[in-house]
Design a protein around this nucleic acid. Sequence first.
DNA 1: CCGCCGGTATGACATTCGTCATCCCGGCCG
DNA 2: CGGCCGGGATGACGAATGTCATACCGGCGG
Lengths: 197, 197
Amino acid sequence: MIRVLIADDQDLVRGGLAALLGLEPDIEVVAEVARGDEVLASVAAHRPDVVLLDIEMPGLSGLEVAERLTGVRVVIVTTFGRPGYLRRALDAGVAGFVVKDAPAAELAAAVRRVTAGERVVDPKLAVTALTVGASPLTTRECDVLRAADGGASVADIARSLFLTEGTVRNYLSSAIGKTGARNRAAAVSTARSRGWL
Amino acid sequence: MIRVLIADDQDLVRGGLAALLGLEPDIEVVAEVARGDEVLASVAAHRPDVVLLDIEMPGLSGLEVAERLTGVRVVIVTTFGRPGYLRRALDAGVAGFVVKDAPAAELAAAVRRVTAGERVVDPKLAVTALTVGASPLTTRECDVLRAADGGASVADIARSLFLTEGTVRNYLSSAIGKTGARNRAAAVSTARSRGWL
DNA sequence: CCGCCGGTATGACATTCGTCATCCCGGCCG
DNA sequence: CGGCCGGGATGACGAATGTCATACCGGCGG
């Protein structure tokens, strides 16, 4: 019996995945959590063989959780097949990476394969991740781009990061250049779609 | 036996919902589709009692599908509890509106209740929808905001909508005013979060 | 029939952005 | 030890953006 823990913030989705895996005779869902920061305690309590992690969760992101988890196989299950996400997931040592628009049958298969010691990654995604490459953005450029999301002005960003307006402009300019965008909004959009933020 | 059709573009989620409802003795999932524009044909073919519609799907959005569907009860199942979505859904005559972070048990309950002729809407969401109010944006203002998403310049927007740059600036200015934002990016963000786009 | 609203357009104006050059500092690598 | 890179800052300049007043047209409600 493969013991599985599921972490996803959307009740309906989490319940759905549990129901899906519950249909498999050799898989048992031993716990479900809705927040990233509850995963570690639950893993300690239930000792699952495999942990399914959504990336976007309150508390801690799935990627952050994956970095902290040891002694258990991790499969990232996410809506967004962003190259940067895959890269960070692999850096964090996950055993599998499945996107939510993959065929439903693939989930159970992935769980079995990582249990058997294999690494499960969508080949198409892997190619894209290699093609797009790693993030060229520095830490601060990321910070500034994140702060710029939602339409904050240079002054707003400067205040929220305790920087001078001029410095913020420099970082934005640099990030715009690196993303090949023509303004901050496009830069944010590009960086986000690549999983760089 | 309540016959249900599920429309959601993410295989894993759709499969999950199907598995979840499959556990109920009085509910039968008779069809699944992944695109909005496949729903009508599938409804004609399978004659379900209830149709579960995700909003964000390729082809047609769940809201557009709901407007076109007659003779069947519709439940919107969406990630985003945006007031504007709920409003448009109710205008389209749906019988239920469930957000994906609702408890899993609520889905089957919602299906049963709409079958019994009830209308199922999250009370909190209903309050927010009434509080926030309907969209103050005109059609063109929406168009321009949508086109502005992703960081397009005034010139880009003008080209894509066959307008003068000055006119685009006017619409943007007006939309920025109506959303209480301080620039176009914030306006897009606000309008989107309210479901006005 | 007149007025208002939405769509479209023009021109002028102040403000914000994006770019560039240049500077300082502290690590880290060769 | 001497670069080089990343973080941080300043000032200047041109381009893009946001605001406002004004105008014309077509439809719809009073």
